[in-house]
Amino acid sequence: MDHSYSNTKPHQKGKHLTLNDRTTIQELHSKGYSNRAIARELNCSPSTVGYELKRGTVPVHRDKPAEG
């Protein structure tokens, strides 16, 4: 965004996500954060977060009830 009132850091186009970014996506997603909220944290597009989750690059851990 080129607006002076924007409060987000500019995202570099074509920048690959780091392992740290992918870990952040995993942690926030498992806590129930939306793709949009995660994208705000990483200063990237919500669709980038969605693509990462859909691709399976980010292992998604969901709490399952213990089977007994």
Score class of each variant (00 low, 15 high):
Arg36Asn: 11
Leu19Pro: 03
Ala37Phe: 04
His16Phe: 06
Ser47Lys: 15
Lys64Ala: 11
Val58Met: 02
Ile38Lys: 02
Asn35Leu: 05
Thr23Arg: 10
Thr48Gln: 12
Cys44Ala: 07
Val58Tyr: 00
Gly50Ala: 12
Val58Asn: 00
Asp63Val: 15
Thr18Lys: 03
Ala66Tyr: 14
Leu53Tyr: 01
Gly32Thr: 12
Ala37Asn: 13
Glu67Pro: 13
Met1Phe: 05
His16Asp: 03
Ser34Arg: 15
Gly14Arg: 03
Val58Gln: 02
Thr8Cys: 05
Ser4Cys: 04
Pro65Gln: 08
Thr48Ala: 13
Glu41Phe: 09
Pro46Tyr: 00
Gly14Cys: 05
Pro59Ala: 00
Thr8Ser: 11
Ala66Gly: 09
Lys9Met: 12
Pro10Thr: 07
Tyr5Gly: 02
Gly14Met: 01
Leu42Thr: 04
Thr8His: 12
Ile38Met: 07
Ile25Ala: 00
Arg36Thr: 14
Ser45Trp: 04
Asn20Cys: 05
Ser45Leu: 07
Gly14Trp: 00
Ala37Ser: 10
His3Asp: 01
Ala66Val: 14
Asp63Gly: 15
Gly56Lys: 02
Lys13Gly: 04
Arg22Leu: 12
His3Cys: 05
His11Thr: 07
Asp2Glu: 05
Asn35Gly: 11
Ala39Leu: 09
Ser45Lys: 15
His11Lys: 00
Tyr51Asp: 09
His11Pro: 03
Leu17Arg: 01
